[in-house]
Amino acid sequence: MTQTVALDSDTAISPARLNHLQALEAESIAILREAVAEFARPVMLYSIGKDSSVMLRLAQKAFYPGKIPFPLLHIDTSYKFPEMIAFRDAYTKEIGAELIVHRNEPAIAAGANPYTLGTQNCCGLLKTRSLLDGLAEGGFDAAFGGARRDEEKSRAKERVYSFRDSAGQWDPKNQRPELWSLYNSRLKKGESIRVFPLSNWTELDIWLYLYAEKIPIVPLYFATERPVIVRGSQLTLFFDGMKLLPGEEVRMEKVRMRSLGCHPCTGAMRSEADTLPKIIEELLTFRRSERENRAIDHDEEGSMEVKKREGYF
């Protein structure tokens, strides 16, 4: 971290206490290395979002001057924004990472969508099922995920090493105690661990780090004039080929995405923030949490916990 005044080399090498981003970075790198040392076949779940972008940079740092010693796995629901896919392909190529894309093709062919299935069922098929299949196909015993504990209440209970049984499921009441930075990587056949190197990062930390490190992110995060439609209570981005429902019309608004999910279920927000400092400033005045614009999380109280138990990350 050499780009900013507070993080210049003087501070970075002082034996005084590290500042909070340096401390978080050191912890995350140690977690990534520990998992690579201990698991037979790790993989990184790469969602193309801002958290994944930070996690990917941390992986580059952890194994420098070597290459990232594991593949990236993207679970493509077929509902990702075209900009996301373009960014994914260009960026992973640029940094020389191995990318695996997994899709639940039978469900996609059968027309799985959130409108007729409901968000929970649609996510179950296109994300959770697809993720579990993708992990099983690759024979991965550990999967890095970019989830943060500050995102949602049930995530606040997650361990850094989150144990999953042979069906990929999470049992929140029976988690392994996790002390100091000593992680228990012992597994039986078929079991796996989700490793969360960003556990202790907050949304603000992520943005500060993206800024300090000049990490590229999908342009959808920055506000610009975009075609949108109002669908339900949500401002939805419109793009070519999208079917309009009766009564809907396309109009232009200056909007950005606060988090990137599937387009039918991730709303845009009106914003003037077209640079990272502006996004950070906006975030500090926000009174709403980042997952609020995702339909899935607030279907019912505790819905994230239910999804996580089933194997969602």
Binding site: T4, L7, N19, L21, L24, L208, P277
Partner: peptide, 10 residues
Amino acid sequence: FLEAHLGQEL
């Protein structure tokens, strides 16, 4: 502000 924030302790 950013500088101050980046320099915070944990």
